[in-house]
Simulated assay, not measured.
Amino acid sequence: MTEPLVDHNSTVVLHFDLKLEDGSAADSTRVHNKPAKLRIGDGNLTPNFEACLMGMHVGERKAFTLAPQDAFGMPNPDNIHHMDRSKFGSETPPAPGMIIAFTQPGGVEIPGIVRDVAGDSVTVDFNHPLAGQKVIFDVEIVQILNQELDS
């Protein structure tokens, strides 16, 4: 029996370490020993990230660098909002660098980073915190589940 390889029909269980260009750690599944489970082709991963996983086998480890557009995207100026300070609770006044969860219509929460507080205006950035960053993924394949697509 041949060893399974990551292909277009795979669900992949993997560990990853995510680092920034300067070498600082941004995220890791190894910290809590909880690997990620990803489905190739479901639209949650960028095509370039998926391409880097293709052909890998269980136990294989590989590091690759992704440009911002292939990782978390570029910052979108439309995702930066200026809000009135009165929208924030007095028990926790907004301060630059603070991450606050905002509830959207429909109850979905989205995190925003306070970038600036000037008088009654609070600037909140809803871009992904790693948008615009070149990132380095160090992945290790734990399990590959190849499934034929249902017709």
Rank of each mutant, 00 (worst) to 15 (best):
V12H: 02
V12M: 05
L14V: 04
L14G: 00
L14F: 06
H15P: 02
F16E: 12
D17A: 12
K19Q: 13
K19E: 14
L20P: 00
L20H: 13
E21Q: 14
D22L: 03
G23M: 03
G23Q: 04
A26E: 05
A26R: 11
D27W: 06
D27M: 13
T29E: 09
T29A: 05
R30G: 07
R30L: 15
R30F: 12
V31T: 14
H32T: 11
H32P: 00
N33W: 08
N33Q: 14
N33I: 04
P35I: 06
P35H: 08
A36E: 15
L38F: 08
R39G: 07
G41Y: 01
G41C: 04
D42P: 09
N44G: 12
N44Q: 13
L45P: 01
T46F: 04
T46D: 06
T46G: 10
P47W: 04
F49D: 03
F49S: 05
E50G: 06
E50H: 02
L53K: 00
L53Q: 01
M54V: 02
M54N: 05
G55A: 08
M56E: 07
H57C: 10
H57I: 05
V58G: 04
R61T: 15
R61W: 00
R61G: 14
A63M: 10
F64N: 02
T65N: 06
P68S: 09
P68C: 09
P68W: 05
D70Y: 08
A71R: 03
F72H: 13
F72W: 13
G73Y: 09
G73K: 10
N76V: 07
D78G: 11
N79E: 12
N79K: 15
I80Q: 09
H81E: 11
H82A: 12
H82Q: 13
S86D: 13
S86A: 15
S86Y: 07
K87L: 14
K87Y: 13
K87Q: 14
G89E: 04
E91R: 10
T92G: 00
P94K: 03
P96C: 08
P96Q: 09
P96T: 10
G97V: 07
M98C: 05
I99K: 12
I99P: 03
F102A: 07
Q104W: 00
Q104T: 11
Q104C: 02
P105L: 10
P105F: 07
G106Y: 04
G106Q: 03
G107T: 03
G107H: 05
I110R: 14
I110W: 06
P111Q: 12
G112C: 08
I113H: 00
I113E: 11
I113Q: 12
I113S: 03
V114G: 03
V114L: 03
V117T: 02
A118I: 11
D120V: 10
V124W: 09
D125C: 08
F126L: 14
N127C: 11
H128E: 10
V135P: 02
V135S: 05
V135A: 09
I136P: 02
F137V: 06
V139T: 07
